[in-house]
Amino acid sequence: MPRRPRLTGAATAALALGLVAAAPATGTEPPVGDARVVARFDPAAGRTPENIALEPDGSADLTFAAARTVAHVTLDGTTTTRATLPAVADPATPLVRRAVVTGIARAHDGTLYVNYATGTRATGVWRLSPGAAPARIAALPPDGFPNGLALDERRGVLYAADSVRGTVWRVPAAGGPATTWARRTELRPSRAGSFGANGIEVHRGAVWVSNTDRGTLVRLPVRENGSAGAPETLARGLAGIDGFAFPGAGRTALAALNGGNQVVLVRRDGSHTVVLTEADGLAGPTSVAVRGRAVYVPSAAYRAGHGPNLLLARLRYHFGRL
């Protein structure tokens, strides 16, 4: 299908801003609206987007799990490959039995970090520096499944959520051995063969983790010495929760419910409301990113009837510190 001409960085940023420049909500409008699909992907080529990081101009970097690639997507849908992780012989990744690129995080200088789950010694956190080949900076256990990835630039560390081991790994952003930061029941799956800790974010002095199998959102405070505090389960009943993001400075979150083809608004009291559905274009959403009032949702379409895509919507409300 022909694509529209690629936008310049300035034009792309202006397009993203245009999504958020509408009049204030009346109070009767849903909190998220104006959804549209900006890019569609070919599942036969392994282009199943798993996680997302945003660039300053409003474009996005996506991990295509099955293709082992990191791609750059502009808001006119133009998609280019940034890097491909090296193939491994006889991948034996728990749960999926193939090598997959999962979580992604971006530093202010443009460096990208990704999790690579292979079931081999190649499993770990990899760095994609501008102009350089992918390089592993920390090994992780081959029998684990590193999934979501979050960067705390102030402390100079990355946090990787392990869906099998119920663990959050801590890795120096400069590279070095991974250490167990938190291993808790709240992070483990309740059943063998299921995904536990999945999405992960650093927000307001804590590391937040979704547990897919338990349908929960968990907050772990970061103590002054950098260690993990006691976990607090803030929301339950989020069946199939995957990645999530915060639309403001408070505890309100937007979460992707993969199996239900929904994005929900999770309030600080733990209640939640559906704000996007399959009718808006979702097809097994895997993660969420927010920039200003622009909401980005990649869908991998593992079970949905239509293909993978990247959806862009608009926050109608300002959430502040709610």
Results as ranks from 00 to 15, higher is better:
E186R: 11
A22L: 11
L95G: 00
A235V: 02
V218E: 03
G240Y: 00
R191C: 07
L112R: 14
L282P: 05
A132Q: 15
L254N: 00
V100N: 13
R303Y: 13
P231G: 00
T12R: 13
V222F: 04
L257V: 02
D280V: 00
A301M: 07
A105G: 02
E224D: 14
E278L: 06
S163G: 09
R267F: 05
F64S: 00
P31F: 03
G270K: 00
A44Y: 08
P298L: 03
R170D: 02
G103V: 02
G9R: 15
A206R: 01
F41Q: 11
V32Q: 09
A138L: 01
V101Y: 02
H306A: 09
G77H: 00
S194A: 15
G193S: 12
V168H: 09
A25D: 08
D57I: 13
A87E: 15
T28E: 12
T69F: 04
V297A: 09
A65D: 11
D162P: 11
L54V: 13
F41C: 12
H318R: 14
A255S: 03
R268G: 13
I104M: 04
Y296L: 10
A45T: 10
F145Y: 15
V222G: 05
R127G: 05
W126Y: 09
W126E: 07
A133M: 04
P30H: 05
P298W: 00
V88I: 02
H306K: 11
R321F: 07
S163F: 04
P177W: 06
T120K: 04
M1A: 12
F195P: 08
T8R: 12
V295I: 10
A10I: 12
G284W: 03
L187W: 02
A228I: 04
R136V: 02
V275H: 07
D57H: 10
P247V: 08
R321K: 10
L128H: 02
A301T: 04
R214V: 08
R154N: 11
V100C: 04
L15W: 11
G305Y: 02
I241N: 08
A228N: 06
L140Q: 01
G175M: 05
A182N: 08
T167D: 10
A228S: 14
R188W: 06
P86M: 07
N309Q: 06
T81E: 15
L238K: 07
